[in-house]
Design a protein around this nucleic acid. Structure first.
Lengths: 141, 141
DNA sequence: TTATCTGCAAACGCTTTGCATCGGA
DNA sequence: TCCGATGCAAAGCGTTTGCAGATAA
């Protein structure tokens, strides 16, 4: 389905009026293929393992452009480098306390919290951060 | 109740076998008095406004010591400097999308999610991050 | 053609570290 | 007394910025 991915990415650039460059394409493609929430540095290393190359500054430039366009999100759940996520649907997260793995959890997989207010605060959205042991780590104690 | 706070802090140091120094005391006292999750730099500035003084390195040293002793927690919900919280009970958080304010939300104020597993993952804990408008910001649109 | 993007290198903000000195128990 | 704490200054890491040259549309 590589062809579909390519045109999906090109269509997305079109839709949000972002120029398609090899570097930008490589960043978004990598994020879509790798849902483990890579850091900027991991993206930089991965897309430079093969062509096309992109400098660190360009990786950051493009991450910000993609975030601005609503195609990518920052994920900040722990200290350290920011992680990035091409899944822009509403979803929750799971952090493995042993290996640091970070998974998306489908919104539909978790009971909803229907609160619209807490005290005088207006709730517009919420996200649940689960912590525990991932599949792998739970199998070898 | 300042007397009570003082002895509560001294007792806590005793209990976790941390030496009581003016700098360490100042850091923990500030975090307890200010539940708005200050950054290391805000703590540094605040406790140096009056005596006793503490260097930046000492503020970080003590934050780590207090975290290691279980008296303080890191809070990382957004990019930027880490924020610190002396509330070590289970609780949720609220982030104001307009002003950045960060509030604790009592665990009891929110319906519980009783999931013990999601797929093959073992859930040991979870935290909800609410986003919206704080009391102040919701009153002036 | 031209507005946008790239990439280098330097600067930045936050945090950690090495080490000599100090001080709490 | 002596182990741990302090504080300076320098280094570290992740990220941003300025700008000259390149490129997508």
């Amino acid at each position: 389905m590589t062809g579909n991915l390519r045109s999906a990415i090109e269509d997305a650039f079109e839709r949000v009026s972002l120029r398609s460059t090899p570097q930008r394409y490589a960043v978004l493609e990598y994020l879509i293929r790798r849902p483990e929430h890579p850091t900027a540095d991991q993206i930089f290393s991965a897309i430079n393992a093969s062509d096309p190359r992109a400098s660190r500054a360009t990786v950051y430039n493009n991450l910000h452009a993609l975030i601005g366009a609503g195609l990518v999100r920052e994920v900040v759940l722990e200290a350290g480098p920011v992680r990035y996520d091409a899944n822009i649907e509403r979803h929750h997260h799971f952090v493995c306390e042993r290996c640091g793995r970070l998974d998306d959890i489908a919104y539909a997989d978790v009971p909803r919290i229907s609160r619209r207010r807490i005290g005088s605060r207006v709730i517009r959205d919420y996200e649940i951060v689960f912590r525990g042991l991932c599949e792998r780590c739970s199998q070898r104690p």
